[in-house]
């Protein structure tokens, strides 16, 4: 009789431990789930911030920016600088590859282009590397395109697509 009582007590103890362990494991799983969601949310936000910060950086890069004397505002891009960097001007394949390799360390997987809307419609691809990213964060920045030879201002949009 006593032995049966002891067995019941032991079974009760084991039951309590199993229930506590189960609750703890459930708690950990739920906590991790929430934490993972929060981390994913943070990563998403960081990528969006990176894309915005990239757009700010690009318009102030000396390889695109208008010179101090011709600057028409914050987002002014020099037409001949766009032509030079997009390979429209005289460039060898080696030079274009060298540019791409260099800018990859800076832009990673992104598509950066300028669509000129006025005085003529034209698209210049500044950098392109799609990589294996599926999600795209896209930022569009209106820009003034300054032609130093005709000394006229055009208008366009700088499009930055970041592949994540």
């Amino acid at each position: 009789m006593k032995s049966k009582k002891s067995q019941i007590q032991l079974a009760e103890s084991i039951g309590v431990i199993v229930v506590i362990t189960f609750l703890m494991v459930m708690g950990i799983v739920v906590y991790h789930r929430f934490r993972q969601d929060s981390i994913e949310q943070q990563i998403r936000e960081k990528k969006e911030i990176d894309a915005v910060s990239l757009s700010n950086t690009i318009t102030s890069l000396p390889e695109l920016k208008c010179s101090a004397f011709s600057s028409e505002g914050v987002s002014c891009i020099d037409l001949y600088k766009i032509k030079a960097i997009s390979g429209c001007l005289e460039k060898t394949v080696d030079e274009i590859n060298y540019y791409h390799d260099y800018y990859y360390d800076y832009f990673y997987n992104a598509n950066i282009s300028v669509i000129q809307a006025y005085p003529e419609e034209k698209t210049y691809t500044i950098y392109y590397e799609e990589g294996s990213g599926k999600n795209i964060d896209q930022i569009q920045v209106p820009v003034t395109i300054y032609d130093p030879i005709s000394e006229t201002n055009g208008f366009g949009v700088l499009i930055i697509k970041v592949f994540n």
């Binding site: 020099d78 001949y80 032509k83 060298y98 540019y99």
Partner: peptide, 14 residues
């Protein structure tokens, strides 16, 4: 090197 090369292309146009 990259910037001087880009500037060279632009200066040739100018």
């Amino acid at each position: 090197k990259i910037l001087s090369n880009l500037m060279l292309s632009r200066t040739n146009e100018l």
